[in-house]
Design a protein around this nucleic acid. Structure first.
Lengths: 236, 236
DNA sequence: GACCACACGTGAGTC
DNA sequence: TGACTCACGTGTGGT
């Protein structure tokens, strides 16, 4: 039996029949509305019959409405990473988080708009590290970090390591490498442990990364200069 | 008065008091539970009193549950592009669409995984156009297009024009330019007018774009060859 | 008055 | 048992 099915004793029914509700029980089967109407309502006024029909319509409409809502909730359950038995409230909490992420992300992409950057992220000659943070309006904290430096093979692994150690989840990453230099634009989400202060950790970690790159390239230039000078000396 | 507040006549109340429900009306004010208990329940059994308390707890807990759910729905209303008066059902429909978009996007990024591509999208020597489509499981149709060709200044405007004319919404775009060649990876969403067949239009449009690039570069090489040959002739 | 969307209180099921 | 989640039927206000 469906829950709530036995509570089908509307005030209207009781008023119409003048029955004491304690002695009236429709039983556990589905209410046989038509025969009920015949049995009890033939002698009642037509307006009461119409009211009864309206009540039945209302009941069914409400059922349809519930089904509409629940079908959407089921769709969400099937889409999101959650079981089919997560309750409505926590399901909706997950959904809120997801959608917020999307919105924050979009806002961030808009805020630090492409219009102010070269469209295809072409790296500049000078090293750079910039970190923006989204306005934290109750949602998840989102950072957008941009760095530009000499490219080297272990840059990406180290960058990934930094993000992992700071427990930052990468939402988007774009990069462009030209002539040995690389520009990297990251949109990352902080977890709930982070505050807006985390921006400093991220910034200094990225600065360290870029610094190491420039050291390496300085070494390389130094070596190159030494090699050139050695060659000159050998030639002379 | 809140809707439904006057229907506070539980079966338990009626059974306990043995009243005929037609003559019993608690009125429209909030039920004064304590005085009610004193008036009607002092003579009744203790178990009945406990049942009554349980019923009150239940009622309040249920109210809290509803508030929890509705607060999440309100959050969603404030986040999504919709008024504060949109239906629960249509709100949830919008949400489903949004989340589906996210999931499709992520699945697409995973499916055509980076592992099979060079990590930083480095363009290849040969021209390429590939278009994947997401498995359309009722959600929005998503295409992932990758193209690689000679770079030229009007490539981006033309690409944007193609997407606009096909009414494809760009969800993500990544690109990498190296030594005059460009690789472009796009994730785009089709609107409801599109079918899976649209993939062919997109593909041929992109092929046209790449072809034009190679024509231009062929022209350029041709011109360069002609200039070189002319110079040789002049020198001879 | 008909229709719609909502909040409510309640019975039932699950853990 | 109690604490919870859910579906239901209903009263009500808005169009």
């Amino acid at each position: 039996m469906l829950p709530g099915a036995s509570s089908e004793k509307s005030e209207l029914y009781r008023i119409m029949t003048g029955m004491c509700s304690t002695s009236f029980d429709v039983g556990s089967s589905f209410l046989p509305s038509d025969s009920f109407d015949q049995a009890f309502c033939d002698s009642s006024s037509e307006s009461a019959q119409r009211a009864l029909a309206a009540l039945r319509n209302h009941k069914e409409a409400e059922k349809r409405r519930r089904e509409r809502i629940n079908s959407h909730l089921d769709k969400l359950r099937s889409i999101l990473p959650c079981s089919s038995k997560t309750d409505k409230a926590s399901l909706l909490a997950k959904v809120v988080e997801r959608v917020r992420e999307l919105k924050q992300e979009a806002a961030m992409m808009e805020q630090t708009s492409r219009k102010t950057e070269s469209y295809c992220l072409i790296p500049s000659e000078s090293d750079e590290v910039t970190v923006y943070s989204s306005s934290d309006d109750g949602g998840r904290l989102i950072f957008k970090a941009s760095l530009c430096c000499e490219d080297r093979s272990d840059l990406m692994p180290e960058l990934i390591g930094i993000l992992k150690s700071l427990r930052l989840k990468t939402l988007r990453a774009e990069m462009c490498t030209v002539g040995g230099r690389i520009r990297n634009v990251l949109v990352v989400a902080a977890d709930s442990e982070h505050s807006i202060e985390s921006i400093h950790f991220l910034q200094s970690a990225l600065k360290g990364l870029v610094q190491k790159s420039s050291d390496t390239s300085a070494d390389r230039s130094k070596r190159r200069r030494m090699a050139a000078s050695a060659a000159r000396q050998l030639r002379s």
